[in-house]
Structures are given as structure tokens and as C-alpha cells.
Design a protein around this nucleic acid. Structure first.
Lengths: 240, 240
DNA sequence: CGGATGCTTGAAGCTGCTCAAGTGAAGTGG
DNA sequence: CCACTTCACTTGAGCAGCTTCAAGCATCCG
């Protein structure tokens, strides 16, 4: 896991994260980068995919439609993530990926045995690491899927906060780039349930919520809630 | 995905699957295989892991204990699966793996760049394929986690049936190697809820259940239930 | 045969979903 | 610059499914 240097914050409330670009592991080769604007698709499920992409800036959402046409949000992707990993195995994209804000992505080689994408490690190793990261993420989400609502949201907020910190942004004060609906589908909840969960956390003084602006007031309290066993969480939810 | 040849069934009701051995892609090198008996651990979460393993025979369960000491069943592993993939990335096992019956596993190289494990593909490709399969499995489970109980069980039964078929065993008549509790935790349900779900499927004439012996009576009906959108499934569950 | 283990069934309670209305913010046109 | 529309988030009420607690059975094994 790459630890990004802490640095001055700027562009905090903007829809994209211009501060990220200079933190990349190596300068961008403009020839193989692509700009994706808000609500634009980078990939479509079932469509051909030639190679994986490295997220350079912005945030993307990957999703797919199930048999009923219901949207299932699979993941949010931040700079440093490799997306479209299935390209090294097959020629068809598994899921659709759409930009939540202005994004910058860099094309990666289609051939796993290609030489160095970075100076540090082989491309093969990079792909394997990327896949392993995805396995970890999925496993974590699977664990979360059995937790009660408030615990789920608390855990996710802390994860997001940690991601902010790693990227050199304010960990306790940020703007969510996705709509409630997206976050709800990601967490496996109804939009209304998520909204109520936010309200409960706010009423307990754990977070301050203003639309998409989030401020974490009591990280320790959030952690206690997130890590708590289910009965205790239930008790809290009742009295909260 | 390897398609195993269809062949005569034998050893159907035995706790292990002796018929599998000769279907392996290449003869077993006895020097690096290991026998794991029922309830014996192959790996412990947090303990050192030197290399991945290839499941040769039997079925294993991977799980981990969450903060409360509650068991979370992550996956069941059948012959052909590669387990302990994290070994190519780190030296510590992510989760515990225990044998559900008498199992045979073969040690794989720790170094990704090792030469040929099989004639067909490079070891690197084999690892990448294994990881991709795991990503697909996890994604499928994540999708299932938002489905209602009966739909979840129906879907899983069909998956298991398909796995049986691929391995040359009877697809519509088999013995579950895991306890109800394990299957319930795997599906993210309470044991009682799973039991009731079995009863409902039985009452509808979709399956015949006798303890661990399962017979699929109406695969089409199961498929309709599994693929059905949620409202329709709810309606069915009410009248079922 | 008796004890143990695990599956099944029953009843009650609670969480989260659905349907529905209310509120607030952002953008448009007069 | 301000009404008006729109869209999304919030809040409310009712309902349904799942879990929990508890008891009843079946199967296995000493």
C-alpha cells in the first residue's frame, strides 16, 4: 500500500482533486492518458476492453445492472487504483465504470509480461498487487455486508477518511464525491436508510453533515461503533 | 475455467471424492502434496504462509474470526482451486483454512516467476487466473448478499450443482460436505433462517432434503427463483 | 440405551424496506 | 433579482423478513 506524503491541502471542495497529479509515482506520459468527465463512461459492461487503466486523478464508480435492471454499485476508485484488471484475462469488461467528477486515467499495457510500468516493480507484480488489493477490498465489503447499518456507515467513513489522509488531504473534513444513492447502493442499503444513519451519527455528535460536506467530530467514537460487536451496536442504536 | 470430462459417478456419498484424482491436469508429485484430515487446519489466519496450495481432492472451508470472535465463512474450496494466493504477495495468511473432509493439497511455488507448474500456461498466468477467479467469486457473493433468503439459497444450490457437473459428479443428487451452520454463515444468514429456507424450497417441490443429502427436483424452478427480481421473489415467499 | 450434537420449528421483537410527503438547494426564465 | 421548477436528501408511518430465544426432534456414537 503506497503511503503518500502529507502536504498542504488545496482544492478541497472542488469536484476534482488537482493536488494529486504531482504525487504520482512517475510523470504522466500524455500520449496514453485520457480525460473522462463527470457522468461519462470509461467502460461499459460487456463491451470490449483492451487493457487496464491506472486512475491518475478524480473518482470513478464501477457498477453493473442485475437481471432486473437494478444498479449495483461495486466500487469507488481513487487515484492509484488499477481498474479494468479483467483485461489481462479476457477481452470483455465485467462491469461499467463511470466518472463521478473530472478524471484522468492512464492506459496500461495489455500484456502482463510487458516491461516496467514503473521503476520500482515489474508490471506483472503490479497487476498481481492490484488484483490482491481488489480481493482484500471485496473481502472487507463482504464482511461489512452482515453488519448493521450504522456500523457499516461508520466503518466506511473511517475508510474514506484514511484514504483522504493517505492522499494528503484533510482526513476529518471532506466532500463526498458521490450522491447518497450511489453510496447507499454501495453499502447495500436503501437511500432512506442511509440518510437516517447519517442523522443518527450526527445526533450522537460523531459527525457533522451538510449535504456532501462531512466533518468527522469523534473519530474514536466512530471507530468504537464500527468495531463493535452486533449486540452492543444494536443497544446503541436503540438509545441513540 | 477448467471443464472436467463427464464420466461415471462413484464415491458419491463418501466424505471425500476419490474419483477426482485422475482428472488432475498432470500426475501428482507426491513429494509436495499434503493430506489434511477433517477438522484439521491447513492454514491459520495471521500465521506464516510460505506458498499457495492447489486443492487436489476434498473440500475445505476458509474463514476468519471478526473482532467479536464471531466466525465468518469466506469460501468453500473444491479441487482445482488455488488457495493461499496471498502468499505471492506477503508472508502472512489472511484467513484460516480447515478441511471439511479428507483433503489432498499440493504445494505451489512461492515465487511467481517460477517456471511451469503445468504444461499449458506459465505459473504467473496461473496465479493471475486464480486471483481473477477469486475476484469473480467475491463479486458474485457480494451481489448475492443483497438478495432475499430463498433466492440466495436457490442460487447457491444451482452453483453447487454446476460445480458437481463440472467435476463429473451427479449434478442433481449430492451430499453437502458442510454443516448447516457453515453454509448459513457463508450465505450470511442465521442457521434457523437457512433451515426455514430449505423447508420452503422443499414444500414447493423444488428440492428433496434429507439432512445432508440433497436432490434437485426442479432445476428450472430453482433458476426462476434465483434469477427473479426481488418483488416477485417476495410475493412467492409469501404464498410459498 | 442415553447423551450429545445439530437440525427443525415456533413465537416475539427489531431492523431495514417501501411508499409517501416534506424540505432544501441549485438552476432557469421572466 | 426573484418566482418557479427540478432534483435530491430527509423525515414519517406501516409492513415484512430476518434474527433471537426457546423448545422439540433426529441422527450419531459410545
Amino acid at each position: 500500500m503506497t503511503i503518500y506524503p502529507k502536504s498542504r491541502i488545496h482544492g478541497q471542495s472542488e469536484p476534482h482533486f488537482p493536488g494529486d497529479r504531482h504525487r504520482l509515482r512517475r510523470p504522466i506520459d500524455r500520449s496514453d492518458t485520457r480525460l473522462v468527465r463527470r457522468d461519462q463512461h470509461l467502460l461499459q459492461a460487456g463491451a470490449p476492453i483492451a487493457h487496464p487503466w491506472l486512475v491518475v486523478a478524480g473518482m470513478l464508480k464501477s457498477y453493473r445492472l442485475d437481471a432486473d435492471g437494478e444498479e449495483q454499485v461495486l466500487d469507488f476508485h481513487v487515484p492509484g487504483d488499477i481498474i479494468g484488471l479483467e483485461a489481462v484475462v479476457q477481452a470483455t469488461a465485467d462491469h461499467s465504470i463511470i466518472a463521478l467528477d473530472t478524471c484522468n486515467v492512464r492506459a496500461l499495457p495489455a500484456d502482463v509480461s510487458a516491461v516496467d510500468a514503473t521503476e520500482a516493480e515489474s508490471y506483472t507484480q503490479m497487476i498481481i498487487d492490484g488484483m490482491y488489493q481488489e480481493i482484500l477490498r471485496l473481502t472487507r465489503r463482504l464482511n461489512m455486508s452482515v453488519e448493521p447499518t450504522d456500523q457499516r456507515l461508520a466503518g466506511w467513513l473511517l475508510e474514506f477518511s484514511e484514504a483522504q489522509r493517505r492522499r494528503g488531504l484533510k482526513p476529518y473534513e471532506f466532500r463526498l464525491p458521490m450522491r447518497r444513492r450511489d453510496l447507499a447502493l454501495y453499502l447495500g442499503l436503501a437511500t432512506e436508510t442511509l440518510s437516517r444513519a447519517f442523522t443518527r451519527l450526527r445526533n450522537r455528535g460523531l459527525v457533522a453533515v451538510n449535504n456532501y460536506e462531512i466533518r468527522i467530530l469523534d473519530a474514536e467514537g466512530l471507530g468504537a461503533l464500527a468495531g463493535k460487536d452486533r449486540e452492543a451496536a444494536h443497544a446503541d442504536q436503540a438509545k441513540g
